[in-house]
Nucleic acid binder design. Structure first.
Lengths: 164, 164
DNA sequence: AAATTTTAGTTTCCGTCATCAACCATTATA
DNA sequence: TATAATGGTTGATGACGGAAACTAAAATTT
């Protein structure tokens, strides 16, 4: 049983690498880096998200998040606006171009995935979906659990904090 | 059906992000970055792998690969040796310390995965394994297909090369 | 209401890192 | 033997993210 988990982990790691920053031919999403794309996605999904929320969602510091949004803004994909409620807060939203680009990238990757799975029948595709939902869900749960254990943020919060 | 693939893609991307460089609390593997760890893993799995092979396996240039191996060597995890057959070639291998460290990291991540999936019964764990095998396998197949299409390496090899 | 503290965000400085191009050494080819 | 090709390294460069200092705008204290 333990060996199974090693194997499963290795598979996850390999899949992650494939879809990570260096994965598919070293490129990601046109003129966007992976992190920029992930940020764009979050901003597109949310409404009036703040700079820090973006950073938090992607495990970046607020300074890092600010710079990612800088880059996205310079490329014309997002727009900052000062909140009408709180003058300190930035409301970040995608521009039309940004939303379109995000959609386009999702589309193309989805095609890629569709090509990947075209040999599978409908039942297996459904099964793949189910399994991935379980994995993503439990990954989030596990992460929150870790964060709950070390609520101070910063020190000592690594995979290595787990039981040996 | 198409919508399914969008969903599946989004799940894969999210899982990948979680296990990527910024994923779990922004940390990866102690004193190793994700790429260093991935390189160490490859070197550990192979025998007498060359610098360029490492680069190729991880989608890095040879100069990038050389520097990653530099870092691993400085940390005492791998060792270069000149090939006895071809004086230009470097045979890279893990040191005892490197092999041990790689194993340790795999172990800890595997524990993490095991924690993630502890609510699932044995059949589902088996199913997860099967699905991941299919995904990893088809991802490799798809990648090779792309590389076959654009064998010159370098220009035009992106996800965007696919049919729109 | 004035003073202080807290909070959101930006900016400067810095270290890390991957690529490109030039380069060195060795092997293969002419 | 001369030339080309190949494996690997090095130096310059640019992208990038974090820490800390800083600005401006609430929130809190007195």
């Amino acid at each position: 049983m333990h060996k199974d988990f090693v194997h499963i982990y290795n598979l996850i790691q390999e899949l992650s690498w494939h879809f990570g920053a260096h994965g598919i031919n070293g490129e990601c999403c046109g003129d966007l880096s992976l992190v920029e794309y992930m940020a764009l996605k979050r901003i597109n999904d949310a409404e009036n998200i703040t700079v820090q929320e973006v950073g938090h969602a992607l495990n970046f510091t607020k300074s890092g998040a600010s710079k990612i949004i800088d880059r996205l803004e310079n490329k014309g994909y997002v727009k900052r606006e000062i909140s009408s409620i709180d003058g300190r807060v930035c409301c970040v939203n995608t521009t039309a171009k940004g939303a379109e680009t995000a959609l386009e990238i999702v589309q193309r990757y989805s095609n890629y995935v569709s090509e990947m799975l075209k040999a599978q029948d409908a039942a297996m595709v459904e099964n793949v979906k189910t399994v991935l939902e379980i994995l993503v869900d439990s990954a989030h749960r596990q992460e929150n659990l870790l964060k709950g254990k070390f609520p101070q943020g910063g020190g000592g919060m690594s995979v290595f904090s787990m039981d040996k």
